[in-house]
Computed example of a mutant assay.
Amino acid sequence: MTLHWTSDLEIGIPVIDAQHQRIVEYINRVDHAHRTHESAEVLNVLDELVDYTLSHFAFEETLMEEAGYPFAKAHKKVHQLFARRIDNFQQQAKAGEDITEELIHVLKAWLVNHIKRDDNDYSDLVRANLEGATKRVKARKEGWLSRLFG
């Protein structure tokens, strides 16, 4: 069953929301490959999903740390545990086990729960930090331009 992106999964940080949407697309590609009995494609998409998700985690963790999110270490630990769990699924799949249905169920449930709970917890602080950084950059540019053309 396809996972649909809905507005209740948005945390209000466009770059993170776009990354989450891409993860949903990967999950749906794994599901499609499974339903069409394309075992090799399941493994390929799973590899892509893992690579993309790990870089998403690193990006998200950097944003949390830069914003001073007090639970960044705990959030990172949640990411590490999930990555280990998915690595186990990958190893089983590469060994020829059909773990796809369980994997898809875990991916969907984990992602929705993680976004709605864990990611929503940091969203206000990170969003405020990003907005502040944008204002500071804009002020520096305006200051430079006004001095140049003032």
Rank of each mutant, 00 (worst) to 15 (best):
H4A: 15
D119C: 07
D87E: 05
Y122P: 09
W5I: 01
T134Q: 15
K73H: 08
Y69L: 02
E25S: 14
G132F: 01
R117N: 13
A133R: 10
H114W: 02
N129F: 12
R117F: 09
H20E: 10
A93E: 04
N44E: 13
R136C: 05
R85V: 00
V112P: 05
H4P: 04
H32W: 02
N28S: 03
E25P: 01
W110T: 00
L103T: 02
E61F: 04
T53E: 05
L9P: 08
R117G: 13
V45Q: 11
F89W: 01
H32E: 08
Q90I: 07
H37N: 05
V106H: 11
H75D: 08
R147T: 09
A33N: 02
H105Y: 11
N120C: 10
E41N: 15
A109E: 09
N88H: 05
H4D: 13
F59D: 12
K116H: 10
I13R: 12
H32G: 04
Y26L: 15
L103S: 04
D51T: 06
Q90P: 01
I16W: 07
F57S: 14
Q21P: 05
A18G: 10
T134G: 14
I27T: 06
A40W: 05
V45L: 13
P70E: 11
L81R: 00
D124F: 04
E97W: 05
A58L: 04
V45S: 11
T100P: 04
E65G: 09
M1P: 07
A72Y: 00
K108N: 02
W144A: 15
F59M: 14
V45K: 08
Q92M: 09
I13Y: 12
D87I: 00
Q21Y: 11
V45F: 12
D119Q: 06
S123P: 07
T6M: 07
I23K: 02
N129S: 14
K77D: 03
H4I: 13
Y122M: 13
R84Y: 06
L54T: 02
A128K: 07
H20Y: 12
G143A: 14
L103V: 04
D119E: 10
D31P: 03
L9T: 12
